[in-house]
Design a protein around this nucleic acid. Structure first.
Lengths: 227, 227
DNA sequence: ACAAATTTAGACAGGGTTGTCCAATTCGTC
DNA sequence: GACGAATTGGACAACCCTGTCTAAATTTGT
């Protein structure tokens, strides 16, 4: 029954699969009920395993919670970097390209299951585990903001935008693009595809109105003249 | 009797003052520990009353929680409307006036004790009490957004700004002004005065760059790209 | 088919919480 | 000073949850 080359899949088949199943169920329950309100029996039931198996794999409610956060952080970061890689460095239609990028980012990273879960856990339990969320902050926003800022800096250098501080511009881009989804996010809801598109469209238009290489505030250095 | 000296500070002292004290302590504990993790003994201790008094006043953990949310919503709304009343309708220096307004809004409504507590309760428990938070949504954002949008519409009508949709502009103003405080808010922290000022300054500058004398409203006609 | 490892169900102790009841005490008022 | 209402502290039962343990059942590799 061994298909092809499976160097280390002997135990993990039912072993590792159950571990993942437990972490997934735990993420769902922790988000729904909060850390204190989550009970292991429910997590076990939702994962389709016995309570003892949960303890065998993760030892502890707190350790399980940590595993959940690390797992979500890792997956979310991977998704964000993958999406940033699709940033329109050589835009054809700058507005359309940035809108499409913003929609991708929201659909694949911010609004999907992992993104919503991670955000909720950070909001609800962030203060209780300072070191854990300090780690998230470094690995997550700390690096993704920089990566996004670098892309905007490149757009500016190529003459498409007039940006004074790329870090500020990147944060404002995110803020604008999500401006109309704030309340939905706050309640943990999932915006419709149409809401995401509308917010992104309005946000990108305002962003471009402010940053398109034509005016305004302080143009410190020589930049390529806009067409 | 006591009508001479303190008209109303003595009688409510024991009864109503304790009620308020309980609600305040409950807000703090619910935020710190989450609904499930909050225990009535701690709330009572923090309020300086006995546990029985908590039950006498509010009857139930759930009723107490509801009272806390309603209380916070009411106070926050009052503060927001009071601050919106200070919107610069006849600006002298538009940029400076809008920055000052944004700082006021953040300091007095968004970052103060009530604002942070309410935001955290909504984020953490919003899904568990749909009707309660639907009410908050109507009374709160539903009305404050409109009020703010009306002020921006007036600015536009007076020729200071060029705004297509005042509701969108109001939301984007808020988003821009808070752009650099997102992570602090997410972790329930309190930004420094300087951070608030910097975020407001950067946000208002971008906002004005986009909305001052903008004639390029609808340039686009291209299709919205799929992902 | 056999043996080792894993999973399961259930029982269980220890700890903690909610909400009630009650007697004693304090507080505000007449 | 005395009366009534509110408050207090403590005891209390019912319940829930965590984490451990055990013996039986199941899976997995050889």
């Amino acid at each position: 029954m061994k298909h092809g080359v499976s160097p280390d899949t002997f135990p993990p088949r039912s072993h590792e699969a159950k571990r993942i199943s437990v972490v997934d169920a735990a993420a769902s329950v922790f988000c729904r009920e909060g850390y204190a309100g989550a009970n292991i029996d429910l997590i076990a039931a939702e994962a389709g395993v016995s309570r003892q198996t949960v303890y065998n794999h993760h030892g502890d409610k707190e350790k399980l919670f940590m595993a959940v956060v690390r797992d979500l952080t890792e997956r979310c970061n991977a998704g964000i970097f993958a999406t940033i890689a699709t940033f329109p460095d050589q835009p054809i239609d700058l507005e359309a390209d940035l809108i499409a990028f913003a929609v991708r980012m929201n659909r694949n990273c911010v609004c999907n299951r992992d993104g919503r879960f991670l955000r909720k856990l950070i909001q609800a339990e962030g203060e209780r585990y300072p070191e854990l969320f300090a780690e998230w902050r470094e690995q997550g926003p700390g690096r993704t903001w920089s990566a996004l800022a670098a892309r905007f800096a490149r757009l500016a250098y190529a003459g498409h935008l007039s940006i004074e501080d790329p870090d500020v511009a990147a944060r404002q881009f995110q803020a604008l693009v999500n401006a109309e989804l704030q309340i939905t996010f706050m309640l943990g809801g999932m915006p419709t595809e149409e809401e995401v598109l509308r917010s992104a469209t309005n946000g990108v238009r305002t962003f471009l109105a402010a940053f398109v290489a034509r005016k305004t505030t302080s143009v410190r250095q020589a930049a390529l003249a806009p067409a």
